[in-house]
Amino acid sequence: MDHVGRPAEPDKRILRRELLSARNRLTADVVREAATTLAGHALELPELARARTVAAYVSVEGEPGTLPLLDELHARGVRVLLPALLPDNDLDWGAYTGEGSLARVQHGGRMALFEPAGERLGPDAVTSADVVLLPGVAVDVRGMRLGRGGGSYDRVLARLEKAGAHPALVVLLYDSEVVERLPAEEHDRPVHAVVTPSGVRRFPHA
């Protein structure tokens, strides 16, 4: 899937639409079973197993499920930070202390998100994370990630770079979402690893 030589943005939009359409066809049972498997594989990553603070997110709809992983991290005493979407698409952060600490928030005409209901810690809180779990719809063999297109995590990555923070960057995906090549732009940064139901794939040049 080599899109070199074509304009990046149209390609990204087409790919994103196709991949999200495939996710929407998954049954609830498939999504639920994958979430449990993903949690087990993710915790095999040494960076995640020894992390004291993990910045993550709550999966919605057909996204690869994160709640089993969040619950296991919290049970192990890991500080788990979850994002809260701000009006300008930047992200604030709050602590996850179990499903009771989540609030369902509707942002205009977009899908509803599950966000931390407690104290807001500020956008810079993410710079304390040892691992950042990034949402995505695909990753290629170089570790380049295709996000959902809102730009929120581009800001997160820029904030980490500005702060001199170097957490492990990990994305959770389905097996079919690991592709040969994605269109990439100058500001795009590769992730360190992808976790799929089949296991973990690392990207040593990230």
Rank of each mutant, 00 (worst) to 15 (best):
M1L: 11
D2T: 13
D2P: 00
H3N: 08
H3L: 15
V4A: 15
G5E: 10
R6A: 15
A8L: 04
A8Y: 02
E9N: 05
K12S: 11
R13D: 13
L15C: 08
R17P: 02
E18A: 15
L20G: 03
S21L: 10
S21Y: 07
R23V: 09
N24E: 15
N24Y: 01
L26S: 04
V31A: 14
V31G: 06
R32M: 08
R32D: 14
A35G: 14
T36D: 15
T37I: 13
A39K: 01
A39Q: 08
H41A: 12
L45W: 07
P46N: 12
E47H: 10
E47I: 06
A49R: 15
R52S: 15
T53Q: 05
V58N: 00
E61I: 01
E61R: 15
G62W: 02
E63D: 12
G65L: 07
L67C: 07
P68G: 03
L69Y: 04
L70M: 11
R76I: 08
R76S: 13
R76V: 07
R76D: 11
L82P: 00
P87L: 10
D88T: 09
D90T: 14
L91V: 10
G94W: 01
A95W: 05
A95C: 12
A95F: 09
Y96R: 08
Y96W: 12
G100Q: 08
S101G: 10
L102Q: 02
L102S: 02
A103N: 07
R104Q: 14
V105L: 13
Q106T: 14
H107T: 13
G108C: 12
G108V: 10
A112I: 04
L113C: 07
L113G: 03
F114N: 12
P116K: 04
E119N: 04
L121F: 06
L121R: 04
G122I: 05
D124H: 12
D124F: 01
D124L: 13
D124W: 05
A125N: 03
S128K: 07
D130S: 12
V131E: 09
V132M: 11
L133F: 14
G136V: 09
V137E: 02
V139S: 05
D140W: 00
V141M: 12
V141Y: 02
R142A: 15
R142D: 15
G143W: 02
L146N: 00
G147V: 05
R148P: 03
G150F: 08
G150K: 12
S152D: 03
S152Y: 00
Y153I: 02
Y153L: 04
R155C: 03
R155H: 08
R155I: 04
A158Y: 03
R159F: 04
A163C: 11
A168C: 13
A168P: 03
A168Q: 10
L169D: 01
V171Y: 06
D175R: 10
D175L: 11
V178H: 01
V179C: 12
R181V: 09
E185L: 12
E186Q: 13
R189K: 15
V191P: 00
V191G: 00
H192K: 03
V194I: 06
V195I: 14
V195P: 00
T196H: 07
S198Y: 09
G199V: 06
V200S: 06
F203V: 09
P204I: 11
A206S: 15
A206H: 05
